[in-house]
Amino acid sequence: MAMPSQNRNWTCSLPAALLLLAPFDILASLAMDIYLPVVPTMPDALGTSATVVQLTLSLYMLILGAGQMLFGPLSDRIGRRPVLLGGALLFGISSLLLAATSSAGLFLALRLLQAAGASAALVATFATVCDVYAARPEGAVIYSLLGAILSFVPALGPIGGALIADHAGWRAIFLLLGGLMLAAILNAFRGWHETRPAASANAMISMRTILANAHFWAYTTGFSAAMGAFFVFFSTAPRVLIDHAGFSGLAFSLSFATAATVMIISARFAGRFVGRWGMAGSLARGMCLLLLGALLLGLGEVLLAPSFASFLLPMWVIAVGIVLTTAVTANGALAAFGQTAGTAVAFYFCVESLIVGCIGTLFVLLLDGDTAWPLAGYCAVMGIVTLVALHRIRARG
Rank of each mutant, 00 (worst) to 15 (best):
191 G>V: 08
300 G>E: 05
247 F>I: 12
305 A>H: 09
284 A>K: 13
186 L>F: 07
48 T>M: 08
297 L>Q: 04
365 L>Y: 03
134 A>Y: 00
85 L>G: 05
57 L>T: 10
383 G>E: 02
187 N>Q: 11
73 P>D: 09
120 A>L: 10
173 I>C: 13
73 P>R: 10
166 D>R: 15
90 L>G: 06
215 H>D: 08
278 G>S: 01
277 W>L: 07
262 V>S: 11
83 V>M: 11
345 V>W: 03
212 A>M: 14
236 T>H: 00
138 E>R: 12
357 G>H: 09
350 C>T: 14
86 G>W: 11
152 F>T: 02
142 I>L: 15
53 V>R: 13
112 L>P: 05
110 L>V: 08
164 I>C: 14
167 H>L: 15
348 Y>E: 03
101 T>E: 01
350 C>V: 11
249 G>E: 07
106 L>T: 10
354 L>W: 08
47 G>S: 07
88 A>R: 13
350 C>D: 04
26 I>R: 05
292 L>Q: 13
178 G>D: 00
373 W>L: 02
40 P>N: 11
168 A>G: 09
19 L>H: 04
143 Y>R: 07
146 L>G: 10
168 A>E: 14
322 I>L: 12
266 S>I: 09
137 P>C: 00
279 M>N: 01
97 L>Q: 12
387 L>A: 07
201 A>V: 06
105 G>S: 09
108 L>K: 10
343 T>E: 13
306 P>T: 00
236 T>V: 15
190 R>A: 15
286 G>A: 07
246 G>L: 10
95 S>Q: 08
84 L>Y: 04
244 H>E: 12
296 L>P: 04
7 N>C: 15
169 G>Q: 04
209 T>M: 14
102 S>L: 00
16 A>K: 14
162 A>Q: 12
43 P>M: 15
322 I>C: 11
99 A>V: 14
117 G>D: 08
392 R>M: 11
160 G>Y: 15
146 L>P: 07
115 A>M: 09
277 W>Y: 13
338 G>S: 12
18 L>H: 02
200 S>V: 03
384 I>Q: 04
119 S>T: 08
364 V>G: 00
220 T>P: 11
60 Y>E: 09
70 L>G: 05
17 A>F: 06
78 I>W: 03
287 M>T: 13
80 R>I: 08
35 Y>S: 14
